[in-house]
C-alpha cells in the first residue's frame, strides 16, 4: 500500500483513496496540433524504470489533483506538490537527491 501526501488535505492518504493519472508535466495538445504531436501526447508516455513524476487525484477525498515524485522500482514516494506547478519544485528534487545518488535531474 502506498501512502501519498495530499497537499490540499495536508495529510497522508492510502493508495485506495487515490487514483493515478499518469505522467505529469505533459505538454497538452489540441485539435490544431499535428498527428505526430497528438500521438505523442496521447500514447507515448515516459515509462521510466526509476524516478518518475506523476499526477494523482484524491478521488475519495477532496477530489483535487496533485503531483508526486516516486520511484517505479522501489515504490518509494519522495513527496507531493501542487498541481499548479509546471515543473517539480527544488525541495522535491533535493529530497530525491538525498536518497538517490543516481538521480540525474528532472527531464533527464
Amino acid at each position: 500500500m502506498l501512502y501519498i501526501f495530499c497537499p490540499t488535505c495536508q495529510r497522508d492518504c492510502d493508495e485506495t483513496e487515490l487514483s493515478c493519472g499518469g505522467q505529469a508535466h505533459l505538454i497538452r495538445r489540441d485539435h490544431a496540433s499535428s498527428d505526430k504531436d497528438f500521438y505523442k501526447y496521447l500514447y507515448e508516455r515516459k515509462n521510466d524504470k526509476g524516478i518518475i513524476f506523476e499526477r494523482w487525484r484524491h478521488v475519495y477525498g477532496c477530489g483535487k489533483w496533485f503531483h508526486t515524485a516516486r520511484c517505479t522500482i522501489t515504490n518509494q514516494v519522495f513527496g507531493s506538490y501542487s498541481a499548479k506547478e509546471v515543473q517539480p519544485p527544488k525541495s522535491i528534487l533535493a529530497t530525491i537527491r538525498r536518497y538517490r545518488v543516481d538521480f540525474k535531474g528532472w527531464g533527464k
Binding site: 500500500m1 493508495e15 487514483s19 499518469g22 517505479t72
Partner: peptide, 13 residues
Amino acid sequence: DGYNNYSQRGSFL
C-alpha cells in the same frame, strides 16, 4: 496495479 511500476511484487489490497 493502478500506477506504473517495475517492482514485480503487487500489493495486499
